[in-house]
């Protein structure tokens, strides 16, 4: 199936699903649990073996920098 066909079919799928959801009066549930979600600021942590490992899988790099496209945004 081509990409365009997938996209066309996707919209049929959406309509099929959405037709079951009529308008209702209820609050939205974004999170199912109550969590505090806040932490105290603390002494910073740094793991050089991690930053090396992360950098080593970058498809393009220049020294310690990751490299994205150049010149495309100006």
């Amino acid at each position: 199936m081509s990409r365009a066909e997938v996209v066309r079919e996707a919209e049929r799928v959406l309509q099929e699903l959405a037709k079951h959801l009529e308008e209702i009066e209820l609050e939205e549930t974004y999170h199912v649990i109550e969590a505090e979600g806040v932490r105290e600021d603390s002494a910073p942590e740094r793991d050089s073996s991690f930053s090396e490992a992360a950098l080593s899988i970058a498809p393009r790099r220049d020294g310690r920098y990751y490299v994205a496209e150049a010149g495309a945004w100006v």
Binding site: A18, L26, E27, E28, T29
Partner: peptide, 20 residues
């Protein structure tokens, strides 16, 4: 598609209401 500003209400937020 359904998270676009103009469609979020009809699809995404409605789904979140049904989730409740």
């Amino acid at each position: 598609y359904i998270s676009q500003k103009e469609y979020a209400g009809r699809y995404y937020r409605r789904a979140l209401q049904f989730r409740s």
